[in-house]
Design a protein around this nucleic acid. Sequence first.
DNA 1: TATGAATGAGCCTTCATTCAT
DNA 2: GATGAATGAAGGCTCATTCAT
Lengths: 207, 207, 207, 207
Amino acid sequence: MNARFQSDKVKQKKHHKRTAIIEAAIETFAKKGFHKTKISDIARAADVADGTVYLYFDNKDDLLIKSFDELISGKLNELKKLVEGEETFLARLTMFFDYHVKLFTEKPYIARFMAIELRQSTEFYKKFPDYQPIKRYLNYLQELIDEAKKEGNLRDVDTLGLSYLMFGTMDFVLTEWSTREQSFDLLDIKDKIVDIVRYGMYPIREH
Amino acid sequence: MNARFQSDKVKQKKHHKRTAIIEAAIETFAKKGFHKTKISDIARAADVADGTVYLYFDNKDDLLIKSFDELISGKLNELKKLVEGEETFLARLTMFFDYHVKLFTEKPYIARFMAIELRQSTEFYKKFPDYQPIKRYLNYLQELIDEAKKEGNLRDVDTLGLSYLMFGTMDFVLTEWSTREQSFDLLDIKDKIVDIVRYGMYPIREH
Amino acid sequence: MNARFQSDKVKQKKHHKRTAIIEAAIETFAKKGFHKTKISDIARAADVADGTVYLYFDNKDDLLIKSFDELISGKLNELKKLVEGEETFLARLTMFFDYHVKLFTEKPYIARFMAIELRQSTEFYKKFPDYQPIKRYLNYLQELIDEAKKEGNLRDVDTLGLSYLMFGTMDFVLTEWSTREQSFDLLDIKDKIVDIVRYGMYPIREH
Amino acid sequence: MNARFQSDKVKQKKHHKRTAIIEAAIETFAKKGFHKTKISDIARAADVADGTVYLYFDNKDDLLIKSFDELISGKLNELKKLVEGEETFLARLTMFFDYHVKLFTEKPYIARFMAIELRQSTEFYKKFPDYQPIKRYLNYLQELIDEAKKEGNLRDVDTLGLSYLMFGTMDFVLTEWSTREQSFDLLDIKDKIVDIVRYGMYPIREH
DNA sequence: TATGAATGAGCCTTCATTCAT
DNA sequence: GATGAATGAAGGCTCATTCAT
């Protein structure tokens, strides 16, 4: 092993603890909520000392924010790749939801994290006015919708309205699903909701 | 003044402080969030001593629950009266949304209270598994939907799905609206979303 | 016991804890120094709970300041009464020193408190620019000196200079005496220093 | 380059870091005070790693002590050379004060260091009973005084008393001067105080 | 009933010190 | 010798809850 390799290893190690802390934070915040989570809980879960957390993050708030960022950036990138592999708007929409259903089914605590911890306080938003991770999701959805409208695959619905409808519905379904201990089938309800969003709730007119 | 009258007055008085505390609690929880609200904040707002709160409520959690119950019962009753004054499903649906838009426009902190504080923690739900104030809203929505389906004014969509879609969308729109400092027009977006829910997002087929 | 008496008792009681905390603080700060003194040390010494300290004082710094104020105001008042009972400048000067010698001999920790804790940091002075308890002592000394000059009992020495000389000497003697565990006789050295200040250090010119 | 030279260079280098740390420590302790100074502050100022400090000093206390020693030894040696260049007691006394006025005017933080940090705690003196850097100053002053008395240039004042008077006055003047942001003229007040110490404060008897 | 002073458990954060490299 | 990432003990302060009046 030469010097260059060693340096790489060092760099890797440098980030190892940080990554461990982020992962522990996401899981613990999601499981117990921000306020009930002690820094020492996270430190223990990450197998580091309490003080180590403060080598990588300014304070508890900062850790929350950075955890969100990390989580959402990662997921959004994954999502974009998958979605952009699809051709039609319908396929993309389906993929958008499928991705989340899969993600949250596999790691329900992420659903809780995104659906609940995210919105703890206006104070939080006041403190970090530029911190709008949900906004990035919404923006992405809105791009997809606008494209679809251009393609003619979508009638001229209100972009903002549809994005709120889609995101809000998904968010609520997931919140219910995760706080109610997964008492209904996520895949099933997704299909049923997609059906409503596609065709509306009015009786389908015969022609 | 006879004994009966006196007793009534006493009872009224008895409830006066309780009511004041509940009202102060709702407003304060909504404004500052559950964790940042101190019992002494609520006591001051209600113009009672800290200790007095504990004459009417077991603890802070209990006060939160009772506040929700009070708030939601009141609002739900109001809502039911208005909704049941309408004949058609469409009118009822419209009324359902209009009522909330009006309510939250007038008292935005109630939106915050319902949208955010409501879902603070799994711990909370674990501790009070029977406490599901949202459930009552959802149940009511589902009743309306089922009726409408029977009337033939609604195609055979999934009741649970539609109720989640409607409630989740409303919830999210309100959260955004209240955390983003009312940056968009609530009435306007409501109409646009109702349009989507009615007719779906697909191009309307000519016939 | 009537209502008025009871109210007095309450008032007394109200201040009882505050007084106990101040006294405990002075003694503990003096014995251990500001930084080594824990709030819990003071609380224990005052026989109250830790939290009680914060009912009467904003924080540890505030407690230090208030303790000084209390201590110095009290002592300065006592001192003024005694000094003003004397007629001539010489008697007043003697009283000024005698008072301190007696005070510090009886309660050496007060000497430490005034001589050392008082000047912990420039930060402290920056934070509380108006907080100059020593200044009040100096001002008082300067008044005495100016009067004496007017009376003709004192030659036209520099007032500021003499006040610094007197205060600084006293301060240093006390510091040495208290940090060196009272290894010399305070009364004795006082007389010898007074002699120098009176007649100067040059050989007394015969005439 | 031979081995001896190399060894010298190494020794020099060895001491380079130690010297850098001492200098950084004196300046930083003086500027921020002992308790607010972090080891990492000193390390950064000395341009070494935190751990390096512990190669040369046992702990933070030890670093403080060694810094004092270094500072005081240096200054005392300088002072002695200058003082011993003077013939008469009066000239020596003047030099003693002039030296300090010059030193502290040029590097006010040294005044702070000596006047304040020096006396942080009884604990400190208890821990290091032999550590009396001021003592060396006092001893030197006392030697000067005793010599002067032998020479007949000084009446038979109490040596300890006069040394305390001189040192204490100087100490206090400097403390006031440095904590009050140099609000008065050091040179001017020095002359006025020297006048008092020489001739006393009583009206000069005519003859 | 009502009060509000008192309590004390609990937690975030700092920083002197260590030690593997 | 030199580094600096990691450690973990320690303490100021908050605030839900109690209880004597």
